[in-house]
């Protein structure tokens, strides 16, 4: 058997199910949203579902992008700080590294439940601070989606810390020492050595966080408010509706989210390529 043939045979068992599932899901969602494969009634090409969803779709898209952006910025900033503390040349904090690693297997759903217990108006934080439920700001289910963003930022900061920390641990110390010998102070080392070294990993991890947050359902469903909804919550609500006729609208929302996620990834890849081209 030629090496090429062997490689193809090795990759196919993974590639076939992935391509089949992803391809079938996307095609099926597009067809459904265009009215070509309705659960009831006659197939007919129409933009009815898109038209019906259009108004809420715009609101939901803006909301989803906002939540994802806020969560990503917070997660990237805290994650970078965690990575720096966990890999510092002087007194590196093993504890922070271990805590970040231990946060990884916590499911987002559990994170959401925990944030609920912590931030609700009768939550633990309100009790500890001695604030009565009436005076407590509505962090859970409030207009600013604070609990939702906090949960994403919390979980994803640990992810960012691990990715960036991995890069810094293997490379930054020797470069940092070299820079110090060349006379660079703490801030200069951070600005000219550590940050450029970490930038590709930080950018990549941020992009993953953004895309994940954009498409994640359970946190916003549990900690958000009934209206307006982000894209995943809207899609799942429509899909679970008793009225089978709104199923195409759910598909339209799913297609919108998928296209949005794809666009973000392509933009991020372009930006990252430019970033790594600097080095």
């Amino acid at each position: 058997m030629t090496p090429r043939r062997r490689a193809v045979l090795l990759v196919l068992p993974a590639l076939v199910p992935v391509a089949a599932v992803v391809g079938a899901a996307l095609v099926s969602a597009v067809l459904l949203s265009l009215g070509l494969t309705p659960l009831v009634g006659r197939p007919e090409l129409s933009l009815d579902a898109w038209r019906a969803a259009a108004g809420d779709l715009g609101t939901a898209t803006r909301l989803s992008l906002g939540i994802a952006a806020a969560s990503t910025v917070l997660a990237a900033a805290v994650g970078l700080a965690l990575a720096l503390a966990a890999t510092a040349a002087v007194r590196r904090s093993r504890l922070l590294g271990a805590l970040a690693a231990l946060t990884i297997p916590v499911p987002h759903l559990v994170g959401a439940a925990a944030m609920g217990l912590l931030l609700a108006d009768t939550g633990v934080l309100a009790r500890w601070l001695g604030v009565s439920p009436d005076a407590w700001p509505s962090l859970v289910g409030g207009p600013w989606w604070v609990a939702v963003v906090a949960e994403y930022a919390w979980k994803e900061s640990a992810f960012v810390a691990l990715v960036v920390g991995g890069v810094l641990a293997s490379r930054a110390r020797s470069y940092g020492e070299t820079a110090a010998l060349l006379g660079a102070g703490r801030w200069a080392r951070f600005r000219f050595v550590t940050l450029p070294l970490a930038a590709p990993a930080l950018g990549g991890a941020s992009a993953v966080t953004f895309v994940y947050t954009l498409g994640s359902y359970e946190v916003a469903a549990l900690l958000g408010r009934p209206y307006p909804e982000p894209l995943p919550v809207m899609a799942v609500r429509l899909a679970g509706s008793i009225d089978l006729a709104v199923r195409p609208q759910a598909a339209a929302v799913a297609v919108t989210t998928a296209v949005l996620a794809l666009a973000v990834v392509l933009l991020a890849l372009r930006a990252l390529r430019r970033l790594s081209a600097w080095h």
Binding site: A14, A19, V22, A25, L26, A29, Y217, P232, A254, V265
Partner: peptide, 19 residues
Amino acid sequence: ALLSPLVLPPFAVALGLDV
């Protein structure tokens, strides 16, 4: 192609395939 499930929202894939 093998990484595409990371990009596509799981709910979107699930909704599309469910039908």
